[in-house]
Nucleic acid binder design. Structure first.
Lengths: 200, 200
DNA sequence: GACGGTTACATACTCTGTGTACGTACACCG
DNA sequence: CGGTGTACGTACACAGAGTATGTAACCGTC
């Protein structure tokens, strides 16, 4: 384990965490483009120098925010899928957990709306290959292994499902407050039907 | 009809068209963010002043490019769907035409990859409501009217199909050259299956 | 407990690119 | 042929990202 941290290290970690917290809040509220590093710095009561000490660039700040949210998402969705009798039911449980998560401002807006805008599609997809796409591809491969899946082309079908779920995330994230639950349920119904079209 | 144009008007229209042409090419090749208005102006052998004379802003340039591509797409896809025996077969013909179009650099990259980055999701969606989404929603409503559709929630299911097709567009547009046709066909197969899940 | 080095920031500057205000030359119209 | 408007060109303002450098507090070492 890591040896006891010095006071300096603790302070440093605290400002870094504070920067990430305000960055998360402001990116979610006003979007990546409309939030300057100075905004983040001032709101955290430091200067832009501090930001550039802790992060390489504005994009790096977003990536740190983004990565944390995706890790949390992976953990929660995996937990929801655990202990289901077969791959298909696990996938459906995961789907419900995912759609719930999309109702939360930070995850829905940041990962599905702001993510591509901030990182560009290519880099955003690099991250997603580790997170959302990896989960989806895992479920589909498991379903295929259990003979539950119709013969659909392997990597492309996972990508399409990924984009379908991303679309759901965006629909939900763009709505406000109470509408979200209704949209979430509409998405759940429709997506289930569409995925059923892929069953054996 | 418009009266015969003066030489000045003709020149002006020509430079505007030239600006749109180089803008289309450069946005498709290097992306919206990495293309400056000066790049476009120089490549067209004018100055940024000319650009700002014809367009209100950089975003307005992109919108002009984008709108033209979407109009072309609407026309081509509608033509492909015309004269089919029922709504479902019309939709399938439209799907094939759409996926073909996504193989073309300008349409696929500009409308589905660069569009949201350049305009932001909200404004991009405003446009799409007039074009791709309108088409999709039209096909689904027709299918519903003909009793071909399972009871899926009306506006949301159209949006999900829209995002699904957008995902396909992105998958195809991000690939290079020869891969595209293979991916296009994989997408066609998978999407058909998923849409079949929505049939009555 | 003074001391040199390192860390965690602050300050000040550069650079790129958008947008804007204004200048100008040439085509049209009387 | 002189006035007017249009189609640009020129010059400048400004924001925000990134960089180079300064500095003060901390930390291990003797």
């Amino acid at each position: 384990m890591s040896r006891p941290k010095s006071r300096r290290e603790l302070y440093s970690e605290a400002t870094r965490a504070a920067l990430l917290e305000t960055a998360t809040a402001m990116f979610a509220e006003r979007g990546f483009a409309r939030t300057s590093l100075d905004d983040i710095a001032v709101a955290t009561q430091v200067t832009r120098g501090a930001v550039y000490h802790h992060f390489e660039s504005k994009q790096a700040v977003f990536e740190a925010v983004f990565d944390a949210l995706e890790q949390d998402m992976t953990a929660r969705v995996s937990a929801a899928a655990a202990g289901q009798p077969d791959a298909w039911q696990a996938a459906m449980a995961a789907l419900d957990a995912f759609l719930d998560l999309c109702c939360e401002d930070r995850y829905g807006r940041l990962c599905w709306l702001e993510g591509p805008l901030a990182l560009g599609w290519a880099r955003w997809m690099d991250y997603e290959k580790k997170y959302a796409f990896a989960l989806i591809d895992g479920f589909l491969q498991a379903a295929r292994a259990e003979g539950l899946l119709a013969p659909v082309p392997a990597p492309t079908s996972s990508e399409l499902v990924f984009h379908l779920l991303g679309g759901a995330g965006r629909i939900i994230a763009e709505a406000q407050g109470a509408d979200r639950r209704a949209l979430r349920d509409d998405c759940a119904v429709t997506i289930r039907r569409m995925l059923n079209g892929m069953r054996a």
